[in-house]
């Protein structure tokens, strides 16, 4: 069993059994992270390049560690230090990196679809580490992994995603993954931040946060990009946090054992009130480990086998 594509561009393009394969493989990888010597020789001689056109600490570090734990050589390129500032196009940069013997390119880019362009340009594997508002598949897989770990399953769970769904690649990857694995998903936030055609995406959309949280097994609160307010999508941070922020009273509507998640970094007191924010922090270390395990699984599944038959 292997992944059908040599690229990981989005969860919309993955089948449920492929997603489960990644989660199962991540389970095995997690043991390695728990060791004193966190290293296996699997990807010796392979080169992983992270190409980040947007700032990121946790995703980039997570991929880098995943590569290093599996003995791959890792190189990180950030826009400010590369030829990009000299006006080189994405395709030219990608071809140059490929010439240098790259086996997998992990890219983050502010424009949706850029990883598809990259995948068409190079012959090595491409992993989307977040493209514009499109997808962030490794984050989606990490969230699925965490949910499965805490709840023992995904099918049949009620999952509420709260916040700026419209502009969120994390929300998109989450809702594809969750619905494929049989969860019931409801998205909520101000109507200006909800996607058009939510029903067609297979999820329920409501602007009443209380309605969305009621009976939820999992509540995933997205980071609010504060600059959206300047774009006129909602009147003020104050009104947002009062009307749509997740606080103790609203969270009480969910199941007593609700799993509260946040992809980070958090705007404390905006999308999450301080008192519930602390409970999220308690699981953040776990999330970091899970993130590395999921990315190790992706690297193994993309690079660990021979050529596809």
């Amino acid at each position: 069993m292997r992944l059908k594509s040599k690229h990981v561009l989005g969860l919309r393009e993955m089948e449920a059994e492929e997603i489960n394969l990644v989660l199962d493989t991540a389970d095995s990888m997690k043991e390695i992270i728990g060791r004193e010597i966190k290293k296996v020789p699997t990807l010796r001689g392979r080169t992983l390049v992270t190409l980040f056109y947007e700032p990121s600490t946790r995703t980039r570090t997570s991929f880098e560690l995943a590569g290093k734990y599996m003995s791959a050589d890792t190189v990180n390129i950030a826009t400010t230090t590369s030829a990009v500032v000299k006006g080189e196009t994405l395709k030219d940069t990608a071809r140059t990196l490929e010439m240098m013997g790259t086996d997998v390119l992990v890219m983050r880019h502010p424009i949706s679809g850029s990883c598809h362009l990259l995948a068409r340009t190079v012959s090595c594997s491409v992993i989307n580490a977040g493209d514009g508002m499109h997808e962030h598949p490794s984050q989606g897989l990490l969230d699925l992994y965490t949910i499965r770990q805490k709840k023992g399953k995904i099918a049949g769970l009620r999952v509420a995603i709260v916040g700026d769904i419209l502009h969120s690649r994390v929300a998109r990857s989450n809702l594809w993954g969750l619905t494929k694995l049989g969860a019931e998903v409801v998205v909520t936030g101000p109507s200006t931040l909800l996607p058009p055609a939510a029903q067609e995406l297979g999820v329920r959309a409501t602007s009443r946060v209380e309605e969305a949280l009621e009976g939820a097994d999992v509540v995933n609160v997205l980071r609010l990009q504060l600059e959206r307010q300047k774009g006129g999508l909602f009147p003020s941070i104050r009104e947002y946090s009062r009307m749509f922020g997740v606080n103790r009273e609203r969270l009480a509507l969910a199941k007593p054992d609700v799993l509260l998640m946040h992809p980070g970094p958090m705007n404390r007191g905006v999308e999450l009130s301080s008192e519930v924010a602390d409970s999220v922090y308690s699981s953040i270390n776990e999330q970091v480990t899970n993130g590395v395990a999921v990315r190790m699984a992706l690297l193994y599944l993309l690079l660990g086998g021979g050529e596809a038959a």
């Binding site: 069993m1 020789p41 699997t42 193994y300 086998g305 021979g306 038959a309």
Partner: peptide, 22 residues
Amino acid sequence: DITLYRDDLTTRSEQPVVHRTE
């Protein structure tokens, strides 16, 4: 589980499933 230590990973067409070492 020795999957991640195999020396034939890149030559096999069928990719072995990784299991946990316990």
